[in-house]
Amino acid sequence: MGALFSFVAVILLILLAYVGVEVAGMQPIFGIVIPYAAVLTFIAGVIYRVIKWGRSPIPFHIPTTCGQQKSLPWIKQNKLENPSSSTGVIGRMALEVFLFRSLFRLSKSELRDGRLAYGSDKWLWLAGMAFHWSFLIVLLRHIRFFATPVPSYLNLLESLDGFLQVGVPRLFMTGIILLLAVTYLLLRRFYIPQVRYISLTSDYIPLFLIMAVASTGILMRYFFKVDIVGVKELTMGLVSFNPTIPKGIGVIFYIHIFLISILFAYFPFSKLVHMGGVFLSPTRNLANNSRMVRHINPWNYPVKFHSYEEYEEEFRKKMKDAGIPVEKE
């Protein structure tokens, strides 16, 4: 249900851009207004979400750990899986952000001959790595539309990406890997019963949206050519705040930029904002030093207490009268 809804929603978005540009001629809306609004929503939304997380108190010290904690000097500490210092936390976060360490540890369980068996499951990790890294490279490659001249390291990235020199324009591996990986991530939601059960519309929408973005990009590059000089004129106009709509760019470009605008605008309000959230997960970004540093619950209020001295001060006479021993006479 969620999948069908998401699929239809993305198709409707494509049709909307097609009709808007091809029939209604609203190029300025799809090429200028919506991209600006989307980028603004993206930046403001992500900052809003991060500040909102920053304002949430962490009542308990809750790093999740899976290695030997810092202990006696002759017991070897696992500094990455159970960090006790900031350096360790940075190492652990780097592993998490760049290599998806916690996903690598994923295991699956299934019944075999009536007995529960566990095994490692690296497919999600592999597809996740392929997806995120190729998406990053695809994104970086697009800087060529937003800068003249392009920084040379991006040219290097592009020549590495296309080094197979298949066809002209050169086939970029990352585009294909991105599409394959996102297809795997979608299919696993269809075919693994447990994953299918917990999948919601908000899981399917980003997948279909990214799939549509990648497909339109690939179609545009290899099949339905658009006026690339015109495209760059438009994108450069956007980033230099001097927007123009050159004539004769194909409609597929407007569909592509509309879908990516939707993705950007949707970003801060969806699961996609895990891009920022991964850095703010208390289970990962806290050092396991609760035996060395006291974690104070930020919402602890000052407790009004009554010390024994004060108690004795107040009741000394009555205590003496009752024959109860007192510390101060």
Binding site: I47, F146, T148, V229, V239
Partner: peptide, 20 residues
């Protein structure tokens, strides 16, 4: 985050965008 996201905007300040 802002430095990365706004890179295209500040990178092109003062550069001429002339259509070839």
């Amino acid at each position: 985050f802002l430095a990365f996201v706004t890179f295209p905007f500040y990178n092109d300040i003062g550069k001429a965008n002339v259509k070839p």
